[in-house]
């Protein structure tokens, strides 16, 4: 399959990429790993006039970790997230998630920034960055801003990114001592995408829930945060009954997608079951 013709330039800097986007927001697409965009071009579902290759932008590369915070450049590949011992010493959920994304060859090219900015309703990282309470660094013509991950996803393939804005990095605070995170995924056997994916963070103190977060992907038109369940469980002990109720709240938080693989009812049921299993394993 051959894409329709397009122009190609390498962005020399983030400012340069933003400038190119601003000149023709409709006809310009950014490319890094290309593992969503190139198949889309081949199927001619998109035919941009210009691809802007952003791989050379140094500000968007690498993982930096200090005693308080972690910054992950948007260009970081799934394979790099899987391999980074330093990152996984702090947040093992990165390896746990990355090993379940696609296959080794795809992980060598695909990037976390692409996964988040593309906002495929079944992508894995959106759920994980919501559960990690990440802030997304967005750079545009008027400067940069940070958006909490849970407010970033708006609809299917739609985010708060304005036409000439670029997702530059993912920012995380180091977790409080005792906080644990897990990602559970029902993987579509052919595509490898999440039929449903649930990421949960939990910290207990004196037998009560002190911190909690839930990110869900695959279930609805976009990844979402299970706020009602978090509010419900806060300062409560974890019991089978309270976990059951929280899981129910997550599954009822939004209208689930229905397609030929899974009905809305089935997806809601998977959300409930996976949330329950995630909480049970973190409580253990």
């Amino acid at each position: 399959m051959i894409p329709s013709a397009f122009g190609y330039v390498r962005a020399s800097s983030l400012a340069n990429a933003i400038d190119l986007l601003r000149q023709d927001p409709e006809g310009t697409r950014l490319v890094a790993g290309g593992h969503t965009l190139i198949p889309t071009l081949k199927l001619r579902l998109a035919s941009p006039a210009l691809l802007v290759d952003i791989r050379g932008i140094a500000d968007m590369r690498g993982i930096s970790i200090d005693d308080k915070a972690i910054r992950i450049g948007a260009l970081t590949t799934h394979a790099e997230l899987l391999a980074s011992q330093q990152l996984n010493d702090v947040f093992p959920i990165f390896r746990q998630t990355a090993t379940r994304i696609a296959d080794p060859q795809v992980r060598n090219r695909g990037t976390i920034g692409g996964s988040i900015a593309n906002a495929d309703p079944a992508a894995d990282w959106p759920a994980v960055v919501i559960a990690l309470n990440a802030e997304l660094e967005i750079v545009g013509p008027t400067g940069s801003r940070r958006v909490p991950a849970k407010d970033f996803f708006v609809d299917i393939f739609t985010t708060v990114l304005e036409p000439a804005e670029v997702l530059a990095a993912i920012h995380l605070r180091r977790p409080t001592l005792g906080a644990r995170f897990i990602y559970r995924k029902i993987r579509h056997p052919a595509s490898g995408y999440a039929v449903v994916g649930v990421a949960v963070g939990l910290r207990m103190e004196d037998g009560l829930v002190a911190e909690m977060s839930i990110g869900v992907t695959g279930a609805a038109s976009h990844a979402f945060s299970g706020d009602a369940a978090t509010r419900f469980l806060m300062a409560k002990p974890l019991s089978h009954e309270s976990i059951e109720e929280a899981a129910k709240l997550v599954s009822e938080a939004t209208e689930c997608l229905s397609d030929r693989y899974a009905s809305a009812e089935y997806r809601a049921s998977l959300v409930r079951t996976e949330t329950k299993r995630a909480l049970l394993s973190l409580a253990a």
Partner: peptide
């Protein structure tokens, strides 16, 4: 699948120019 800078990749999903 070929190796690009030592990593296995799917060459049907990489632009030659990249």
């Amino acid at each position: 699948t070929v190796e690009l800078d030592g990593q296995a990749i799917k060459s049907c999903t990489v632009l030659a120019v990249m």
